[in-house]
């Protein structure tokens, strides 16, 4: 099988086991620029592992992952890290903001890791915080803001480098539905306007409804519902 034409990130026949636990068993995936794809499935089905493999965080045991024509499996750890720094953005459920840094410093962090000067990075960070309506929190530390605000700060951080793919792993898992929807709206709006693709791992249908299409993972196998019909 070859990746569908025009896809930005595609994976074929991914296999990954953690010891005796098989997390992925021949999963496939593809996403186009500007597309939002939900990865759904019951807990323990391998959703997060799929995301980690796609993002180059965890190398799969076998299978291929191509990003923009490049094969991820052949890259060194350093090269994959560099890719994550510059091309990808990440939003997790919680525990991702550095508690000691202020919100604006947190948002600026990925830029600074890429070597942008502090001043410039924080100016760009503030711009994104404005878009996500959290610019008034810039001097606060993550411990001093609410869950919804913190998650928006995290979204700003995921988008600050202008990534081509944003990986969101249960981004609203710790939020109530109102805050969750707001975060999803801001995330998908911002991603669409930047033509960034979003890989959205979630088990909530209402969150998945913000996607363009969904992929269901069950027992480590994926099922692309659009192509199945």
């Amino acid at each position: 099988m070859t990746p569908p034409p025009g896809s930005l990130l595609a994976a074929e026949d991914l296999r990954k086991a953690y010891g005796p636990t098989v997390a992925l068993d021949g999963a496939a995936f593809s996403i186009h620029p500007g597309e939002v794809v939900a990865v759904m499935g019951p807990s323990g089905s391998g959703k997060s592992t799929l995301l980690h493999c796609l993002a180059g965080i965890v190398p799969p045991d076998s299978g291929s992952i191509t990003y923009d024509g490049r094969e991820l499996a052949g890259m060194t750890d350093a090269a994959r890290s560099a890719l994550r720094r510059s091309e990808f953005g990440f939003v997790f459920q919680f525990g991702q903001l550095v508690p000691e840094l202020t919100c604006v410093e947190n948002v600026a962090l990925p830029l600074r890791l890429n070597g942008t000067s502090r001043k410039e990075a924080e100016r760009a960070a503030l711009g994104w915080m404005e878009r996500l309506e959290v610019d008034d929190l810039k001097g606060k530390r993550p411990g001093e803001v609410s869950g919804g605000q913190g998650q928006r700060v995290a979204v700003a951080r995921a988008l600050v480098t202008g990534p081509r793919v944003v990986f969101a792993d249960e981004p609203t898992g710790a939020l109530d539905s109102l805050n969750g929807e707001r975060v999803m709206e801001l995330l998908t709006d911002a991603a669409r306007s930047a033509n960034a693709a979003v890989v959205l791992v979630t088990h909530e249908a209402r969150v998945a409804a913000y996607s363009d299409r969904e992929i269901v993972v069950r027992d480590g196998k994926s099922r692309d519902m659009e192509r199945a019909i």
Binding site: S81, R84, R85, F88, G95, L113
Partner: peptide, 16 residues
């Protein structure tokens, strides 16, 4: 632990 992993996820160098 959790924080460190997420920092690594978005590409923080081990050296840093």
């Amino acid at each position: 632990r959790k924080l460190l992993s997420s920092l690594v996820a978005f590409g923080t160098r081990r050296r840093t």
